[in-house]
Nucleic acid binder design. Structure first.
Lengths: 242, 242
DNA sequence: TTTTTATTGTCTCATTTTGTTACAATAATA
DNA sequence: TATTATTGTAACAAAATGAGACAATAAAAA
C-alpha cells in the first residue's frame, strides 16, 4: 500500500501527499482465484502492492505504471473500485517498522508516517504470463488463494474483501471473467473461472447454454489433451466489431 | 468540487492538499430525477457541490458534513462511486475566475489553483424535505432535471454521467430507489422513480408483481386523493428485522 | 480391432419467471 | 344510480432457467 515501487527512501516532493493506491491483482491457476501479496523484509508483514501518484501524473496511469513494474504486463483489465479514506486506516507504527527494517532510523515526521487516503483498483491477469517482481522494500511477492490469505496489514484485508465483492457483482454484467483466461480457452475453463469467482458450483448445461446464447464467443479448433474422452472446442472472446 | 463549504478564503493548513470531493445529490419531484447544481457569483459557472477533507477527518465524514450544510439532512443514503484523478480535470484558470469573483486578486501559487483528485459520491434524498443552501462562493443552488442540465464546469458533466450510470446499475441490486421517496408512498410513485432512473417506461402489472414478490414492502392504509377512482394503498419499506 | 471410459455438445421436458391481457373493485363525479 | 379513471389481482402466453438424458467422441484397455 505504501512504500513500494520506490528505490531509495522516497522524497515527498515528486508525489501527491497523503494519497496512495493499492491494487488487488487477481489471477486464476485453473482451479482457484488467487491474488498477489507481498511480504516486507524482516517484518513478517503482508500487504497489497501499491504506490503513490506523481504530481503531474494521471491517477489511472500511476496504477498502470506500478502494475507494469510488478507483472511486466501492459494491456490488462484494470478497474478502480473504492477509495478508502478513514483516518484509522493509516498506521504510522506499522509503516515505521517497514521503513526501519529497510532504511534504519526514520524521522518522526517523515511523510510516509502520515495519513494516507488510498484509491483501490483490481486487476485481472493471465496467471501464466506473469513472473511477479518484488520491490526494494519487500523480499517476496507471491500468489495466495483468496481463501488462504496470510493476515494482511492495516486495512488490506478489508480492501481484498471489497475487491472480491465488486468482482462478483461485475461478473455477469461486464463479463470480466474472460480477462483471467488465455486468448483461447475451453468452456470448462470459463465455467471454472465463474465458479472460482462466485464461490459456488454451476450447472454445466445451463452455463454453456447461457454463455453461448450471449453470442460473445467465437468457436475455434478442438483441443486434444490426450485424455480418453471427447475433445472440447476452444473459444475466444469475440472482438467487438463496432 | 472546490471552494465550497468555506467562509473566508480557505487556508490549506487544515485540509488534505490536492484532494477534494464532489457530490451528485439526487431528488425526485414526482416526475423527474433532479440534481442539485450551484452557480458561482458573477461567473456563470455551474458546478456540483463539493468540498475538502480535513487532515484528521474520515473521508466519508467530510462528505456527510458538506451534505448536511447543503441540505440540512443527516441520515441520508450516500455512496461513493468513483475517484476522478486525471491531471487534465483540474482547471486553474476556472478556479481563478471563481476565486477572483469572490475575493479579488489571488496569489498565482494559491493551493486552490493546484491539481485536485476528487472522490465522487451520490446521495439520494427526499426532495420535499430540503431547502437547499448556497455557500459563500455561490449565489444559488437549484434543482435541475438530469436531462436539462446547464453546462457544468470542468469534468462535472462526466461526474454526473457516471453517477447516473451507477445509480441505474444499483437500482435492481440494492433497491436504492426507495431513498428518493417519503416514508410512505404508493406503488405508482415507486414505479415513477424507477422509470425516471432507468429512463424508460415500465409495465404496471409486471412491476407491481415483481416488487411485491420481493417481500420488502409493508402495506398501510389507503391514500384518498379525492380523485374519481380507486384509492391506492400506501407502502413503506420493511425495516430489516435482523 | 473392438470394447470401455470419461467428457462434451445438444436435446427434451419440467419449472420458474416475465410479458400481456383481462377484469372486478373502487372513489369520486355527473 | 350510472359513469369514469385507476388500482389490485387473476389468467394465460411466452421466455428463461433447472434438471436430466443421450449420442458423439478421444484415448486407453481388452
Amino acid at each position: 500500500m505504501k512504500a513500494n515501487f520506490l528505490r531509495p527512501l522516497p522524497k515527498v516532493a515528486g508525489f501527491i501527499p497523503n494519497l496512495a493506491y493499492d491494487s488487488v491483482i487477481f489471477g486464476f491457476n485453473g482451479k482457484q482465484l488467487k491474488i498477489l501479496i507481498l511480504e516486507y523484509h524482516n517484518t513478517k508483514l503482508f500487504a497489497l502492492p501499491g504506490g503513490f501518484v506523481k504530481k503531474d501524473e494521471n491517477l489511472n496511469h500511476a496504477v498502470k505504471r506500478g502494475l507494469k513494474e510488478r507483472t511486466g504486463l501492459d494491456e490488462i483489465f484494470l478497474e478502480q473500485f473504492y477509495t478508502f479514506g478513514d483516518t484509522a486506516r493509516s498506521r504510522p507504527d506499522v509503516m515505521k517498522r517497514i521503513l526501519e527494517a529497510n532504511y534504519g532510523v526514520i524521522a518522526e515526521d517523515h511523510w510516509l508516517l502520515g495519513r494516507f487516503i488510498s484509491v483501490a483498483y483490481y486487476a485481472l491477469i493471465n496467471y501464466e504470463k506473469v513472473n511477479p517482481m518484488p520491490d526494494e522494500l519487500s523480499d517476496s511477492i507471491n500468489w495466495y488463494s483468496i481463501d488462504e490469505l496470510p493476515p494482511l496489514m492495516m486495512d488490506h484485508g478489508l480492501i481484498v474483501e471489497k475487491a472480491v465483492q465488486t468482482l462478483r457483482e461485475n461478473l455477469e454484467r461486464k463479463l470480466v471473467g474472460i480477462n483471467l483466461l488465455p486468448e483461447k480457452f475451453t468452456m470448462k475453463e470459463l465455467q471454472q473461472v465463474y465458479e472460482a469467482i462466485l464461490g459456488k458450483k454451476l450447472r454445466r448445461t445451463t452455463f454453456q447454454r447461457r454463455i453461448l446464447g450471449m453470442d460473445i464467443l467465437e468457436r475455434h479448433e478442438k483441443l486434444f489433451l490426450g485424455t480418453a474422452n471427447k475433445a472440447p472446442y476452444l473459444y475466444s472472446f469475440k472482438s467487438i466489431t463496432q
